[in-house]
C-alpha cells in the first residue's frame, strides 16, 4: 500500500517533470481533449439539467414555506457553482473519460504496446500519458462551467414555469447571487479533481497486468479510487476554502 503510493507519487513527479520541461505533444493533447470532452458532455448536461430542475423544485417547496420563493435562484446558483457542479461533473467524468483512459492504457500495456513504444526510443509517459492528463486538466473545468450553466437553466425553467418568478428577475438574481469567490472556489476544485482523475486513471492503466481480466480489474479500481478521492478531497477542500474565503 505504502510502496504503491510511493510509486504513484513518483509517477506523478515524472509526469510533472515532462510538463515543466515542455515535452508536450500539442497534437495529441488536442486529440485527447476532443475525445474526452465529446464523450462526456451529453451525459454531464443531462445530469446537471436534472439536478438544476430538482434543486429548484425542492427549493420552491422549502422557500415557499418562508414566503421567499424569489430566493430559489440563489439556492440553485450557489449550490451548483460551489458544490454540485464541480463534484457531479468530476464524478461523471471519472466514470466516462477516466475509465476510458485506464482501459486504453491498460489494454496497450497488456498487448506490449507500451513496451513497444519504449523499444522505438519513445517515452510512453511523454507520448501517451502527458497528453491524457493535460486533456483532463483542460477539459474538466470547461465541462464544469457547461454543467453549471445548464443546471442554472434547469432552475430557471422551474423558477419561471412553476414558481412564476419573472424571467429577467430570475436571471438578475442569479448573477447577483454568484460572487467571484463562489465561482472560483468551484473552479479551483475542478482543476484539482482533474489532476486527481488523470493521475489515478493513468497510473492504474500504466500498471495494468493480467490480460483482459486485468484491464477490467484495474479500470474498475481506477474509477472507484477516483470516486473516493473526489468525495474525500472535496470535503477537505471545502473546509479549507471556507476557512480562508468564507
Amino acid at each position: 500500500m505504502i510502496t504503491n503510493l510511493g510509486r504513484a507519487l513518483c509517477f506523478l513527479g515524472d509526469i510533472m517533470r515532462h510538463i515543466v520541461c515542455g515535452r508536450i505533444r500539442l497534437g495529441e493533447v488536442l486529440k485527447q481533449m476532443y475525445a474526452q470532452g465529446l464523450q462526456s458532455v451529453i451525459i454531464i448536461m443531462m445530469t446537471s439539467l436534472a439536478s438544476g430542475l430538482v434543486l429548484a423544485l425542492q427549493g420552491y417547496v422549502a422557500m415557499a414555506r418562508f414566503g421567499a420563493k424569489e430566493y430559489i435562484s440563489h439556492l440553485v446558483a450557489l449550490s451548483l457553482v460551489r458544490e454540485l457542479g464541480p463534484v457531479f461533473t468530476a464524478l461523471i467524468f471519472s466514470g466516462k473519460a477516466g475509465a476510458r483512459i485506464t482501459a486504453e492504457l491498460g489494454t496497450m500495456n497488456v498487448n506490449d504496446q507500451l513496451l513497444a513504444t519504449r523499444t522505438m526510443g519513445v517515452d510512453p509517459i511523454e507520448f501517451l500519458v502527458v497528453p491524457r492528463i493535460l486533456a483532463c486538466f483542460l477539459v474538466l473545468p470547461i465541462l464544469t462551467v457547461i454543467s453549471e450553466m445548464v443546471g442554472i437553466a434547469g432552475g430557471y425553467m422551474v423558477g419561471v414555469g412553476e414558481a412564476h418568478i419573472p424571467g429577467p428577475f430570475y436571471i438578475n438574481q442569479t448573477i447577483k447571487a454568484i460572487q467571484y469567490v463562489d465561482f472560483f472556489s468551484g473552479f479551483i476544485k475542478s482543476f484539482f479533481f482533474s489532476i486527481l482523475i488523470g493521475w489515478v486513471c493513468c497510473y492504474q492503466g500504466f500498471t495494468t497486468k493480467g490480460g483482459s481480466l486485468g484491464v477490467g480489474k484495474f479500470t474498475t479500481k481506477a474509477v472507484a479510487y477516483s470516486y473516493i478521492f473526489i468525495i474525500v478531497s472535496n470535503t477537505i477542500l471545502t473546509k479549507i476554502i471556507l476557512t480562508f474565503w468564507g
Binding site: 486504453e104 489494454t107 496497450m108 498487448n111 506490449d112 504496446q113 513496451l115 513497444a116 523499444t119
Partner: peptide, 11 residues
Amino acid sequence: YLFQEGALYDF
C-alpha cells in the same frame, strides 16, 4: 525490435 505478438498501436 519485433515483438512476438507484433504490438502494433491499435489506435
